[in-house]
Amino acid sequence: MTVMQHIWIVLGVLFVLLNIAAGLIWVERRMLALWQDRLGPNRAGPFGILIVLADTLKLFFKEDWIPPFADKWIFITAPAIVVGTVLLSFVIIPFAPNIVVADLNIGLLFFLAMSSLAVYSIVLGGWASNNKYALLGGMRGASQMIAYEVFMGLSLMGVVMLTGSFKLSDIVAAQKDMWFCIKQPVGLVVFFIAGIAETHRLPFDIPESESELVAGYHSEYSGMKFGMFFIGEYLGITLISAMTTTIFFGGWLGPFLPPWLWFFIKTFAFIMFFILLRASLPRPRYDQLMEYGWKLLLPLVLLNLLITGAIALWIRG
């Protein structure tokens, strides 16, 4: 691949991702409304799609306010971290056989590392706001992320064992005959749950939880800085959906249609599932979430690892 091609891929990925993230503003509102027997935004533009534009404009025109009591520089940096780390994670995702920014051979580890870094955004945002609700949100975010980071990594280890590689294109290639969702059902479930927790999406939006913490770590944020958190969240959804597709659902593999379209369809299905979860499930209590993680998911995923390992050894003889 030439350098020029590389640059085009990077720009293309960036363009598509950011557009998807923005478009999700409309998709989420519309889908939530439909699942709640409403129509949702349908006024601005065809099917109300221009609400994306309206909302972005609104965010741009809001006063970009920094509370006088906040730690100014950290307060400004925090929202950039979340967008930065999530966008970096997309580097290793193979969208199609040749469309990948950098097919690292430690791809999975890179993804885990980046998603762990994203927690800094929440912790620092909450801390720099110098507000009790924001701080509580940040603390919750930290503990929730650290806890679920563990199973997320472990849940993927089954796949790694079966593939024998951290490289994502290898993982996709290994699913040519059978998707890992069949071989690794427990891994899939745990990974997806951990993914929800990592993106702190409903029902695991404990760091924000409007009903208790106003808006948690981003209580004090407004304008485009809030917009960054907003975009970061949608990018996170897209990332987890893309990872799920890649690792458990065969990535770009599929008949008839071009590979990138397969990838896109599968990813989008998971995004919809994220939204459906938000429409249907209530938020658990904070301690329930932690208990669920440590007492149920951790043993489960360890067991999964043990059994997968045993089977792998057994198959190899």
């Binding site: 439909l34 027997d37 129509l39 979860l277 249907s280």
Partner: peptide
């Protein structure tokens, strides 16, 4: 939980209450 998610999903096909 699964049942809840399924039932919510089915609401995609019900009549909407919004009056435009």
């Amino acid at each position: 939980h699964v049942r809840t998610i399924w039932l919510t999903f089915l609401h995609l096909f019900t009549k909407k209450v919004t009056i435009e």
